[in-house]
Amino acid sequence: MLATPTDVLRGTLDLLVLKTLTLQPMHGWGISQRIEQVSRGTLDVNQGSLYPALQRLEQKGWIDSEWRTTENNRRARYYKLTGAGKRALGNELASWRRYVASVELILESANALA
């Protein structure tokens, strides 16, 4: 059976964006490509939904943006992680790991019962 790309869980998009921006400042399209590449296509990020998420993160002060010209001399908006964003990423990662661990735990114990 062919694996269909999994919808990005609500709220995890923020986490992915923050994590991606730890590498370097990027524009929206770059972020979407990066997420697609790294997840090898298993995560289907609706590219359009990226922009409201970026706006939300910027309002929280976790990322910052500025307009720059690309190597092709095209104006693009670049996003970068702020100090608050780095700290937030730490928290989000920790809570994500707790979440995964507890789901894992439940699945394990369900297996044991079965």
Partner: peptide, 14 residues
């Protein structure tokens, strides 16, 4: 306008 520019850029790249 900024958002439209961003979307436009995104679609161009894609």
């Amino acid at each position: 306008r900024d958002l439209d520019d961003e979307i436009c850029f995104h679609l161009e790249q894609e």
